[in-house]
Design a protein around this nucleic acid. Structure first.
Lengths: 188, 188, 188, 188
DNA sequence: GATGAATGAGTGTTCATTCAT
DNA sequence: TATGAATGAACACTCATTCAT
């Protein structure tokens, strides 16, 4: 949001850092190794970010922004059932979007000293998801219990997220089928 | 499994370490601080555990064992619907059992170099959960689609876990109501 | 001496650096912070000074020049007793002239690798002070032991300097009264 | 005061650090170089001191304690004039006692962030000096203006200190003669 | 079983300085 | 004249681990 334009060098640092943080988490990550991935010296990172926290939080903000865009795009599509497109798109999204993997592990298990910041950012994303599903449900059928179903949908989403986070895409389809069948049943 | 009996000193280290790991995770934790919590010197930890990994994995095994006991006990109870007791007990369990919090964050976001070990241990717990719910479902009604509902139940559980991990117990009841209503609907 | 005229930017750097060095000393000072005070980038300092040493020594020279001017002006005044005006003016001078504070701490405790340079510069100032007081003493009364009293006067000055350096102006009057009474007694 | 006994290794660190700090000051000093002087690794210093500040402040406390002992011993001696022995002993003390050199530069020009601590410690030493000279003066002659002469004596001391700090022992005798003659004159 | 002392490797971070622009 | 980016060197400090006692 703040940095619409990012220098090539800065972006390369972000890309490398994202990959590294996905792998090792905040505490397990090392600026030295990130610098090596980029092909620069560790000190050069500080020409672009004031410290490790700033770099990490930049990635969090990026990931949140991308997550917002993703959910917006999914709910903008024409779909048979409320929220179906998002669920169906999750698997491919997880495989392609590194920042999504980053966001999952970071939102659920943030570094202790950044818990507050990250929670504030992520909760906004959750609210946006809730608004999307609420609207879609109310448009789908006037007789639905929107409050209950919205909560249930968010629970379904979390369930799919965890499947990806814990097991990757291997058994995702099975989980998706089960959870969606659960949700679709409740829609009738 | 290996240590049925544990010296008082060793147990005190485990207790402190558990609390510390829950707070900071494997990489963010420091043996120095754990020793301080116990009131011993850092080097003394090595009189009980060969290294940080061994201490951590001991806690993982403890947590898994406790999780197994917990799920066993829950499914041993008389219950109206399959798996209902476990869901209802989660909130209090989370508040009381530190090893449960530990297990959640550790299973979903393990330290990179222990991913394999932890996954192996946790997947056995998952299998046990699956067996419990499968049995309960088949005993509840012969006409149920056990395979589907078991998967759905595991998804529901994950959803509740994440609610606890991310938001604690604050909004847990809302999530529990929604997810259980979803599941109960599918039982009919 | 070298730069009779100084660009506005260069002078602003000098002003900020002086304040910063007064506060933190050579080793404790950071060009980064000095640049921030001026509102420029760190690299821009190098458009005006070849390095940190050059900047620092420029300030030393400035401070010495100002100290010379100050002692010259003081001894040019009509005064009841030799050197009295300088002593009386010290307190206000310390409060107003940052370069005086800078000179005190720098002359007495210089950075190790510049000790020689600074000592050379400052000793010239000391000699000038000695000449002033010697002349004033010999003009005051032909019967005075000028050599002894000059040395004593320099000692009195150092004593007042240290009072300012260590305790600021809080208890300066008390020290000034005592030292001047000592010196005045010796004049009779 | 707190550590009556100090392990040999810890004392060797103190000795090396004292010498290094005398030479380079707090900000100019490096734990790496101190460790090299001792013949240990940098990290080993932290087995004895929690950080650089703690090491430095230990030396300050040592130096203050030694300064207190020194002034006590000097004023315990039989002397012709109040405070004469201390003044006469300063030169040799400066040559022999590294902690005295350390105390001079540290008390007059302390590292910014420790100014408060050091000032508190040093001012107690100043008070002790003042009490010594006050007592000696009042015992020397009932007709003396003890308040004025005590202040003057402290000024004389500062003057001698600065001579040592700035010029070492080279011209000390000249300064001592002049200042003491000044003070002795005032005693009559 | 516990610890004081030590250490090699590593941390994030700051430093003064350079250089192409 | 100014600066964005980079860098080698150094910084204080923490890490898990070892070992003699």
């Amino acid at each position: 949001m703040s940095n619409l334009v990012r220098s090539a060098a800065k972006q390369r640092i972000c890309d490398a850092a994202l990959e590294h943080f996905v792998c090792y988490g905040y505490d397990g990550a090392s600026l030295q190794q990130i610098a090596e991935m980029v092909g620069i010296r560790k000190a050069s990172i500080y020409a672009h970010f004031t410290n490790k926290d700033a770099l990490f939080l930049t990635l969090v903000e990026d990931a949140i922004a991308a997550a917002n865009q993703f959910v917006d795009r999914c709910f903008a599509k024409q779909q048979n059932f409320p929220g179906q497109f998002y669920c169906d798109a999750l698997k491919q999204h997880y495989q392609q979007a590194l920042h999504f993997r980053f966001l999952l592990r970071t939102a659920y298990v943030p570094p202790q000293h950044l818990t507050q910041n990250i929670s504030t950012l992520y909760s906004k994303h959750l609210t946006r998801c809730e608004q999307h599903i609420s609207l879609a449900l109310s448009q789908h059928s006037a007789s639905l219990d929107v409050t209950y179903l919205s909560q249930a949908y968010l629970g379904v989403i979390d369930s799919l997220h965890i499947e990806l986070l814990y097991a990757g895409t291997a058994d995702f389809d099975k989980r998706l089928d089960a959870m969606w069948r659960l949700f679709a049943t409740a829609l009738h």
